[in-house]
Simulated scan of single mutants.
Amino acid sequence: MMRKAMVPESLLERAARRFKLLGEPVRLQLLNLLQQHGEMTVQALMEATGQKQANVSKHLGLMAKEGLLTRRKEGLNVYYSIADPTLSALCTLVCGQLRQEAFEAAGEG
């Protein structure tokens, strides 16, 4: 019996781009902050991460372009928030597996 594909052929490129975006620790840190605080400005994200404005803006722009984030401008401030509701579930699933692996590895020592 053949199983259903994990990633449909028609979505391979888009799925690979999404996973590539999530493969950068700074982006995960930004997503963590946005998940915890909801909407945040670039300035607030810079202060929370210690990253430079150009770096934060680059990562936010890439994630917004791919549809992971929304942005809105109010005066001089640009506010970002999470647009993709699947991000939280995806990260919870992956991190749960990583915790389980770490727990099992600790038990072997």
Rank of each mutant, 00 (worst) to 15 (best):
L12C: 06
R14N: 07
R17I: 12
G23A: 15
G23T: 07
E24M: 12
E24D: 15
P25M: 04
V26I: 15
V26G: 12
R27P: 04
R27F: 02
R27N: 10
R27M: 02
N32I: 11
H37W: 09
E39C: 02
E39F: 02
M40D: 00
T41C: 13
T41N: 07
T41V: 14
T41G: 11
Q43W: 10
Q43F: 11
A44Q: 07
A44P: 00
L45S: 01
T49E: 03
T49L: 05
T49Q: 04
Q51M: 07
N55H: 08
K58P: 00
G61R: 03
L62H: 09
L62F: 05
M63R: 00
E66T: 01
E66Y: 03
G67C: 03
L68P: 02
R72E: 12
K73M: 03
K73I: 06
N77E: 15
Y80Q: 01
S81N: 00
S81G: 06
T86Q: 13
L87D: 02
L90W: 14
L90R: 14
C91V: 11
C91H: 05
T92W: 08
T92D: 11
L93C: 12
L93I: 08
L93Y: 14
C95G: 08
L98E: 14
L98K: 14
L98D: 08
R99I: 12
R99T: 11
Q100L: 12
A102N: 11
A102W: 07
F103E: 12
F103P: 01
E104D: 13
A105K: 13
A106E: 13
E108K: 15
G109Q: 13
G109R: 15
